[in-house]
């Protein structure tokens, strides 16, 4: 664009439209976090269930994957932040929601011994909040639906035995994280291709 170029009113309107559209397209690919945590929790819960059935002494060892997830999340987020040239309001909201989610999760898991059988239902309530708010911010319905499914699984989990809770948790992350995560990734790739 040339310096001090005079524009007509129609051109002014066109510039505003074009630039606002450009800003709207600058949305990050947020699917990484949903896929990472989805697969980690699925592996941990299914692994716990199988090892428990097999009579293994420490079936809960599978949850050691969670701190690994925390480290990967922190490293990825820091690396990703460094390369970002633009920060949208949605990105900012997503960062705060992710931090709120992780802090809440750590608090609940730290008091597992007090909460006992109520731990996983409460964990699923927290999952539901993250998915529902993220889905709303990204205007991505599968995540919103995933959040509702997680809340449904949380309610059901209050009434069942521990082993069944593990299966409910597996179902919750599969439908709330993994499937919407791949759909979100696909949507982002299509948008990226369309913009060129």
């Amino acid at each position: 664009m040339e310096q001090e170029k005079n524009i007509s009113r129609e051109e002014g309107y066109e510039i505003i439209q074009r630039m606002l559209r450009t800003a709207r397209h600058e949305v990050d690919n947020n699917s990484f976090y949903f896929l990472l945590w989805g697969w980690l929790v699925l592996a941990a819960s299914v692994g716990h269930f199988i090892l428990g059935k097999a009579g293994f002494d420490y079936p809960y060892i599978t949850w050691a994957l969670m701190p690994v997830g925390g480290i990967i999340t922190a490293v990825y987020a820091m690396k990703h932040e460094k390369h970002k040239k633009v920060r949208s309001y949605v990105d900012q909201l997503m960062s705060y929601v992710l931090i709120a989610f992780l802090v809440s999760l750590v608090i609940v898991l730290a008091f597992m011994s007090v909460l006992q059988l109520y731990t996983y239902p409460i964990v699923m309530v927290i999952y539901g909040i993250w998915l529902f708010v993220s889905g709303g911010a990204l205007r991505f319905r599968p995540l919103v639906i995933g959040g509702v499914i997680n809340w449904g699984c949380a309610v059901a989990a209050f009434f069942v035995a521990f082993e069944m809770q593990l299966l409910l948790l597996s179902f919750a992350v599969l439908t709330g994280y993994i499937i919407p995560g791949y759909m979100l990734n696909g949507q982002w790739a299509r948008k990226k291709n369309a913009i060129g």
Binding site: M1, Q3, K5, I7, I15, K85, V86, S88
Partner: peptide
């Protein structure tokens, strides 16, 4: 009411912040 300044302000109205290189790339 100038092409480049309007483009910059319109672009920034849709985001929280942007780097110089990003604005340069998007406005040409």
């Amino acid at each position: 009411h100038s092409a480049l300044r309007l483009a910059v302000v319109s672009l920034l109205a849709g985001v929280r912040s942007a780097e110089f290189s990003f604005i340069k790339e998007k406005t040409g």
